[in-house]
């Protein structure tokens, strides 16, 4: 069944239709949550939060954009709000030295050595640089969009991205 049909059914309270939407989009949402938070465990928790929030907000979805776009933006907001509300706990997770271990324990990720290296290095980036790198280079957001999301200037977004790439280059020893 197509997204629009399932979206309409789910908005009317059909949980089976909502489960189909979850199955279709779960991996993409999870990837965003895990990469932005720098933790697989946190990514799972945030993914659940995103879909619960989606269920609550679905009746307000007017179809002005693709459901996947709307869902993706909602996921970004949930991740950023969680960062704010988690406060010190989130800061500890972001700065912690366990990120690499968490990424090393990845199961179900294709074992392309080069990509695994980059994945691990992303997990070790400082939180601010990591979030902007993930949104721009992995998810394809524009600097203008990122600046709007974080309340920073376009120049600030570019500078953080450049810093992230330089740190990744250093981590990958290229």
């Amino acid at each position: 069944m197509s997204d629009p049909t399932d979206v309409a059914l789910a908005a009317a309270g059909d949980r089976r239709a909502f489960e189909r939407l979850y199955r279709t989009h779960a991996n993409r949402v999870y990837s965003l949550c895990a990469r932005m938070s720098g933790s697989r465990d946190k990514g799972e928790e945030l993914t659940q939060d995103v879909f619960v929030r989606t269920w609550e907000k679905l009746p307000q979805f007017r179809g002005e954009s693709a459901f996947s776009t709307w869902l993706h933006r909602l996921a970004v907001n949930v991740v950023l709000n969680a960062r704010k509300s988690d406060g010190k706990r989130a800061a500890r997770m972001d700065e912690g030295a366990t990120d690499e271990e968490q990424w090393n324990e990845v199961a179900g990720v294709p074992l392309h050595a080069e990509r695994m290296d980059l994945q691990q290095a992303i997990g070790k980036l400082p939180p601010g640089a990591r979030r902007i790198f993930v949104l721009h280079d992995v998810e394809g957001y524009k600097h203008e969009e990122i600046a709007g999301i974080f309340g920073i200037t376009v120049g600030g977004s570019k500078a953080q991205l450049h810093r992230a790439r330089l740190l990744l280059r250093e981590a990958l020893e290229r």
């Binding site: 991996n27 999870y30 990837s31 895990a34 199961a107 179900g108 980059l118 992303i122």
Partner: peptide, 24 residues
């Protein structure tokens, strides 16, 4: 830096290690 940008854009989706649907 260009290679990093290209590789990041080609990163595959991650897959949760457990089914998250029951919790949702």
């Amino acid at each position: 830096l260009g290679n990093i940008e290209r590789e990041a854009a080609a990163l595959p989706d991650l897959i949760p290690v457990r089914d998250l649907w029951p919790g949702i």
